[in-house]
């Protein structure tokens, strides 16, 4: 007779405790949900492969010429390229950095460090939340109303001076409009970063006699800096990829001849185009000239490189600091 050990009994009991048979339904479910994620990633893979494949003719043979070229009436033109679009997108990014970043961070500091929980604060928070959900095309209408058309508000606040400043449908108007568009993103992400600052740091600063603003400058901002930077990079990438508001305020979709260099600030008051607008333009022109589809795909690759690099930096930065502070 075999000796029955304690281990055998335990194993036998464990077997009876397991459910009947294999968990077929559960396995199918797990594979199904994993499948949805991989399908989503596959779609993006196909997308990136498709634009690379379509744009390869331009990118492989004349990348330099494509980056320095301009809008042309024929796709086989040797001077066809995206430089005018890069100029517009560069200055849009500059305006977002100069206007939306400081304003957004300042608003976040106020809301997290200064504001009392009263009706005004709740109203401001509500306004920011709602602004973050307004479709981008509506911001285009706002830009059209404020910066391109001369309007008067409530019958007495004239806005003509704004239009004189922007010069109408120009990179300045585009930059201001997109700065307003990304402002809620900057505020919300900065608020989250500031909220995560340990109160011990703040109390320490007060303990050695710092005023509130000194405490914020020496403790809150340095600690929250990576989080704030993540938010600003994401909002910058959003602004560069945005096309709808630019169409509304009158970005040029053809026949732009001037090709200013990046530092040429006088061109800021001229008509303009931007990288996403070039893509739309060339896609619409491909019926007449099939080669413009290639140009559009090549411009998409340029846009994706800029936008995805910004996003990737932002997300890696955030994950790194999250891990460090655990």
């Amino acid at each position: 007779m075999a000796i029955v050990t304690v281990g055998d009994v335990a194993r036998k009991n464990a077997q009876t405790l397991q459910g009947a048979g294999r968990d077929v339904g559960g396995t199918i479910f797990r594979i199904a949900v994993a499948g949805t994620l991989y399908v989503s990633l596959l779609i993006i893979g196909v997308l990136i492969f498709d634009v690379l494949f379509d744009g390869w003719d331009q990118l492989s043979t004349r990348l330099g010429g494509f980056l320095s070229g301009t809008l042309r009436s024929r796709s086989i033109d040797d001077k066809l390229g995206v430089h005018q679009g890069l100029y517009g997108s560069f200055w849009i990014a500059a305006f977002v950095a100069i206007i939306a970043f400081p304003t957004g961070i300042a608003a976040a500091i106020y809301l997290e460090e200064y504001a009392n929980q009263n009706r005004t604060t709740r109203f401001i928070e509500l306004a920011i939340r709602n602004l973050s959900g307004v479709p981008s095309v509506v911001y285009g209408l706002l830009g059209l109303f404020l910066f391109v058309e001369k309007n008067t508000i409530l019958g007495f606040i004239g806005l003509g001076w704004l239009v004189d400043l922007t010069g109408g449908p120009t990179p300045i108007s585009a930059g201001l409009t997109l700065a307003i568009l990304v402002l809620p993103i900057v505020i919300i992400t900065s608020q989250e970063a500031i909220r995560a600052v340990p109160s011990g740091l703040k109390e320490g600063a007060y303990g050695v006699g710092a005023t509130k603003s000194e405490m914020i400058r020496t403790q809150v901002l340095p600690y929250a800096a990576p989080g704030i930077l993540t938010g600003t990079l994401l909002s910058m990438s959003r602004a560069i990829g945005e096309a709808a508001p630019l169409i509304l305020i009158g970005a040029i979709s053809g026949g732009l001849t001037a090709n200013p260099s990046f530092v040429d600030v006088t061109a800021l008051q001229d008509r303009f185009t931007a990288l996403p607008i070039l893509i739309v333009t060339w896609v619409s022109q491909r019926g007449r000239d099939e080669g413009f589809a290639t140009a559009a795909a090549a411009a998409i690759v340029v846009l994706l490189v800029v936008v995805l690099l910004l996003n990737m930096t932002a997300i890696l930065l955030r994950n790194r600091f999250e891990k460090k502070r655990g």
Partner: peptide, 24 residues
Amino acid sequence: ILKPILEILAGIPSVVLGFFALLW
């Protein structure tokens, strides 16, 4: 690994999807 990839994708501009929808 997968979550950041999905987040990066959230940043693909809509003009790119417009191109993809029309031509692919």
